[in-house]
Design a protein around this nucleic acid. Sequence first.
DNA 1: ATGTCAGAGCTG
DNA 2: CTTCCAGCTCTGACAT
Length: 590
Amino acid sequence: MTADPSPDASDAPVAPGRWCVLGRGAGDRIGAVDVDASGRAGEPVEFTPAELAAFVRDREACSAPRWVWSDTVHWLPRLLDEGVRIERCHDLRLTHAILRGSEFVSDRLALAEATEWSRAPVETEPESRGAALFDLEEAADSARTVPHGLAEAREEFARQRAVLDAVSGEPGARLRLLLAAESAGALVAAEMRAAGLPWDSEEHDRILRDALGPRPARGAKPARMGELAEAIGRELGARNLSIDSQPKLLGALRRAGIDVGSTSRWELAEHEHPAIAPLLQYKKLARLLSANGWAWIDDWVREGRYRPVYVPGGVVTGRWASSGGGALQIPRLLRPVIRADPGWMLVSADVSQLEPRVLAAMSGDRAMAAAGRGRDLYDGIVESGIVETRQEAKIAVLGAMYGSTTGDSGRLVPRLRRSFPRAMRLVDEAAAAGERGGIVTTWLGRSSPAPSAEWFEVQARAQRSGATAADEARARRSARDFGRFTRNFIVQGTAAEWALAWLAETRLRLSRLPEARGARATASGSAFSSRAHLAFFLHDEVIVHTPIEQAEDAAAAVEAAAAAAGRLLFGSTDVDFPLDVRVAERAAKH
DNA sequence: ATGTCAGAGCTG
DNA sequence: CTTCCAGCTCTGACAT
């Protein structure tokens, strides 16, 4: 143990207001202890689980500490159920993961040894199965989750503080910002699940019936798909062909003289045959049915709300993942199904070209910043005479960040290298580090994982004396693959940090709006029924559900939060982050 | 019968 | 040539 949070020789009282660590105490009780700025702890207090909500509500009202707890997923839902919201927290599970991997941290070993804090988030089931799961959850809990005890939380918090105190200067400040933003993201994720995304199931059903025909009996094929299947079989001269079977379909295509190596859309599209069009249409419908069909509505929508399971920090780059329901893969076709309650509106906002702007800011590339200032970045690149069309600009920029070397993209990237040398040097160096098997770090301090043992083995084999040409080719390919990963990591990861800051700032600003006096949301839960709240987040876009009377203020909050996010990360920068904001009853397709 | 894998397609 | 980064989920095929 590097630091002990218990009271030291000084007997000055610890003022509530800084941090308050929460955790399970003896027996069934819950304990809380204040910790001040220098790490000294106050007197622990204990109470029953039933008293938790009241305790937090009172503390929040008087001193609003940063709540330190094992895992937001474990603590926050029960508070939200009782209508208690908190302002800020420190999520030990998420912060542990960042600190353990960060290149900014010198003493990573101290954290790596605390293996019980290196646990993946608990998975969640659809709502239809949720009730039965609740009891199981507690039982399965201990083996798969981080510890929820107060003593363990205090220990881990002390460990993290000690490690963090050793990081001085700019990296320390950035890392602290990242930990706060990551924790705020955990709050947003739990709150958005509790509030839910207002979902118009009737409109969803209408879209499905338009595309597929009436809802079929369980296990039966929708009418429209049946018709298409018949047409396909006819054109291929294969009756009763089961299109859903890849090998059988492939065989039938070949027998009909269509020479394809796979059944993927892009390959089929290259062939001229009367069976192709209905086949592509069939695949589109099959996808809609299996991914977001009637069964999906039954599983995931209750009382006009879709409650996605967001997984903050679920992607190595720091982006969120989702688990169950495919919250981050909802097709654009279904976006209009997101619909505000009566008397409410949706504020939808997305950032234009977030990743290249982040790259311009972190590399300090003034030419690239200038290309995007006050306008579409791709248009700016065209106006600078670097490429001919907006489409070319887009392909070139994406190619630069993804590491394309072939095709149009590979051809255009060198032009960017001439015009934006600083931005390109940053991503090129990140790629070079990855090719050597090194790790790279985002602007705020999230580091990429090292390559696997297999990766190093492949590289070593190519160096040995008996190495074949195939060994060398394989090593070169896997080196380049990892280089593309690290190249993209710093940009995608820093963009995720900007988005987290935006999200956190939006949340805070919305929570400060006065309670609306008008219509109440029908199914949002008591903590969100009378005030604008975040309802959806997807990498670079948010949707806010707001009473009509607050819609303008909510939109202004989203705008102000974006400006604040840029300042928080980059200080004064000549890069701007323009938003496309719409206020409407329904979310737009795009 | 149960578990794992690859293919496909949806998102940014 | 085989487009390139990060994901999730469904399906049929295949291994145990």
